[in-house]
Design a binder for these strands. Structure first.
Lengths: 315, 315
DNA sequence: AGGATTCCATAATCACCGGTTATGATGAGG
DNA sequence: CCTCATCATAACCGGTGATTATGGAATCCT
């Protein structure tokens, strides 16, 4: 019944004292004001403006509208300002969820870049394994999920989780075999997995364990998993203590101290992909886009070649 | 850029959780919501709604709009409620100005009627002589002026004051000659003004004095005005004291005690008209219309035959 | 799985709101 | 008394914002 335009007109009349100057103040012509007032009057069924001679003044009802106009228009302006602030990266929020081992280097570097580039947006970070972070994304509790996928291995099961989502490849994370420094193969240039079929194995998170089993299966043996821990530092500790061998991604090896163990590249090599995941719509939110760019930059990836498909995803 | 309709839609989506139910809640169809959101999005240049699968949820920017919508829509509703209250006589204001001698009976009775009929409207009353009250009306400081005009006499000078104004005849107020009870003519059935040319006269307000002079002039004499006072009670006191004779309207005689004087009808009779005056626009304001009706009723006039022209105004 | 359902998007259409220019009526002022 | 300033009105017209009809895709149920 009453809209913002009408209030704006009433306020202009109250401020300016005539239709003509109100029209000038609003950038309209005089007849626009004239019939706007008439429409408002027949809509509300009240007399809003008293025409006396060639001057006009507001009636009580008109003054009521003009008075309310101040508050309403201020609130509208405030809303508009907030929106443009979000659009201009002078405000906004990004909720980031990343898997634990990325928290060491990738995420801190990303947050630093974001903070330096857009100091006014607020970033929330939560650690979560890929299945949970993707669920949060789907659920609307998260804007960007940093996930990983083992090449060839569990891409299939992740695939359905990624439907309707967009991914950006951040980096390839090579998986290495970690053995005690005193191990007979410690000095080898590369490790063939079959040579370690008799070892005791230290497995990581469930999906990492799955990857180990998958690799071992193609190498023709079934690994003897003696320990399981999601904590990579603990894994390295166990290896250091000579209790077994483990598959550990480069990302961890670059961040954690591991002087007393040997890290051997696998032959054939095995990698996992580090991915940034979001939804098609969120991708267009400035703060989210900035976060994605920062992630790519922190990972050393080319931001432009980002929306590529997963390597190894079935064509 | 942002209008009330858009905010209403965003709030409905936030409340209902889907376009379809938001459309139902607002009484629209689903495509209306769909393209309303799209318009808002391209107007603000931001993503307001995140479409994930077949569910939708608001982005941060969308939540900002939905949040502001609450306040804005509440303010709009409040304004609308105030307007309808004024239109429905459940609120409103009437500023009444009346000449002093009408304050005795006419105005109190009017206020009583108004109070009984519309207890929620606030009535302001100020005493003012017709020239000032009409000036206030023109100036926007008054809604209804109760004025008087002597028949044939000063209608002309009042006429230009009444241009652009509307008048309602409330009553005819007959003017009587007041003489001391001991006066030789005290028992006469009617008084011819010429018979009192030798008396000392007690004049009232400037315009009443003018009326006296005008009547005396047509009767062929120039009255000896010994006293002037705007206070009719004082006039009656002076007559009672035998200090002169006076012309006093019925309206005063009906209200003030005057036992010891004689009141004689003039021959030819002379009347003044009691008028309610307002502007054409204010006439259509419910509270003002109610006040006019109450005035007519208090004066015993037929409210329907009210907008008549002044008697004696030049056709 | 696969089919039914449900939700959103799009296209085509159309009414009307809300602006414009042109013009007229009228009160105010020199 | 004439002129100017102001509001009202008419005619026109584009864009907003609704509608119906239809399609596509995700979710749900069997």
């Amino acid at each position: 019944m009453i809209d913002a335009a009408g209030l704006r007109v009433m306020k202009a009349i109250a401020d300016e004292g005539s239709f003509t100057s109100a029209a000038n103040a609003l950038g309209f012509t005089q007849p626009a004001i004239s019939q706007m007032v008439r429409r408002l009057e027949q809509r509300t069924g009240t007399v809003l403006v008293e025409r006396y001679g060639r001057q006009v003044r507001l009636t009580e009802a008109g003054q009521v509208l003009a008075r309310h106009a101040v508050g309403v228009l201020a609130a509208l302006d405030a809303a508009e300002e907030e929106i443009t602030a979000i659009a201009g990266l002078r405000a906004g929020r990004v909720r980031l969820q990343a898997f634990p081992s990325s928290s060491a280097t990738l995420v801190p570097r990303t947050l630093a870049i974001l903070k330096a580039r857009h100091p006014d947006i607020t970033v929330t970070f939560t650690e979560a394994e890929p299945p949970e972070s993707l669920a949060a994304l789907r659920n609307g509790d998260c804007d960007v999920a940093v996930a990983f996928a083992y090449e060839g291995g569990d891409l299939g099961e992740l695939e359905e989780d990624l439907s309707l989502l967009v991914t950006r490849r951040l980096m390839d994370d090579e998986v290495r075999l970690v053995v005690p420094g005193t191990h007979p193969h410690a000095g080898d240039g590369a490790a063939s997995l079959a040579d370690f079929s008799g070892e005791e194995w230290i497995a990581g998170c469930p999906r990492c364990r799955g990857h180990l089993l998958s690799l071992a299966d193609t190498a023709g043996f079934r690994p003897n998993v003696a320990f399981e821990t999601e904590d990579y530092v603990a894994q390295l500790g166990l290896v250091t203590a000579g209790l077994g061998v483990a598959l550990v991604p480069d990302l961890i090896l670059n961040a954690a101290k591991h002087d007393e163990v040997a890290t051997l590249p696998l032959s054939p090599a095995s990698r996992r992909q580090i991915l940034a995941v979001t939804t098609p719509d969120l991708q267009r939110v400035p703060a989210v886009a900035a976060a994605l760019d920062a992630l790519c930059e922190a990972a050393g990836a080319d931001p432009k070649a980002s929306t590529a498909e997963l390597v190894g995803a079935k064509a």
